[in-house]
Write a protein that binds this DNA or RNA. Sequence first.
DNA 1: CGGCATCCTCTTTGATACTG
DNA 2: CAGTATCAAAGAGGATGCCG
Lengths: 228, 228
Amino acid sequence: MLDFIFYVWQNIGMRSYGQHCAVAKALDVIGDRWTLLIVRELMIRDGCRYTDLRNGLPGIATNLLAERLAEMEAAGLLEREAARPPVATTLFRLTARGRELEPVIAALGIWGAPLLPRKPDKAGFRDHWIALPIRLYLRDRHPEREPIRISIRCGDEWLTLATLGDGSVEVRSGSTNSPHLKLEGNPQMILSVLLGKTQIAIAEGEGLNIAGDVGILQRFRPVPAIAG
Amino acid sequence: MLDFIFYVWQNIGMRSYGQHCAVAKALDVIGDRWTLLIVRELMIRDGCRYTDLRNGLPGIATNLLAERLAEMEAAGLLEREAARPPVATTLFRLTARGRELEPVIAALGIWGAPLLPRKPDKAGFRDHWIALPIRLYLRDRHPEREPIRISIRCGDEWLTLATLGDGSVEVRSGSTNSPHLKLEGNPQMILSVLLGKTQIAIAEGEGLNIAGDVGILQRFRPVPAIAG
DNA sequence: CGGCATCCTCTTTGATACTG
DNA sequence: CAGTATCAAAGAGGATGCCG
């Protein structure tokens, strides 16, 4: 049966390296252009529409997005869900298998971070992207204490950072009532402050707007791969 | 200066996603077809010749290999070294920056492992590949004790597994004197036994040839990402 | 032989326009 | 909104040629 599946695979046009190697097999599935960026987008906001994806993937051609989505669905990375009326749209969500790509995305982000130019180019940036490094690289030192809530604004969009009971950090879109802290400014500066890489005073000097209990930032630590 | 570098980058023909995102920037550099497999190959045996690379990358076109090597050198992933006479050949090695891709390769391998067919297809397999998962996913529980040496044969090639003082495991090509253990058989079975996923008795039933101190295998543990 | 460069064909992509 | 359709340009793959 497995042989049959691989026979079909090879003959369905899915280009394969044809190597008996786990890395090559992974790249057979997620090595195509744009595929991992679509995964990134769905990891940031799971269950989003075609148009949301297009907006979160500046530069992608619409035919390519459609093609990739079909391939990724066939590969079991994502699923389509018909949203309930009256919304009447299709939502794309990662499957469990798709979410298992998180360590790959995390490792790529760590490796690619030094390649980011200091000044963000507005054209190729989307405000919600900041949610990904926060979730992947930030942890709560004291998950047993009261959850942290921070309101973040970069660009026009408001985001809410909230710690969970297991020490992980979630980011939702929208604002929150009575947050411990409000951060407004450019995303790289906000991230740098959260990760403890930039002193608060310096960040304020660079234009970051901070209001609230700055002491709460001591609760955060970066994951070892970042800290090291 | 940095602006200038990025200006050159954008205009040298290096296709870029143009997104201000660390994952996208990483994929700008290592997202091209074959690039990560070349990294894999150099991670297994660093400092190898063009011909060795071609042999370790079944399916690559020679012009593509040459092109990728040039791009990767320009991107600072690898270096050429003129081997001393009388060898008179060029050796390719990863730079430190190239070696930092190890977590990416490791994460891809973990994700891709379930995609491997049970029966290895001889055509698309190279014996030395087994060195990579051993190094990435196997650790010594007791690095303070005497180093472990194991001789491995899959196919025609002999490999030597040796533990280092820091708990990591290295694999060299060639045999060794008086190893604790000799393993001969198919690579997947050998790996499965080393990672503790297959009982020794079962592996022997499946054709694996084991000789020596099988108790030494208790010293090994898989890395958490595998064990979990 | 080792390390490519050239030539050619085929596939993938990117940009844009169009549709139910 | 959620895609198809079309078409030009770029990239991948294969064969072969060249040069020290």
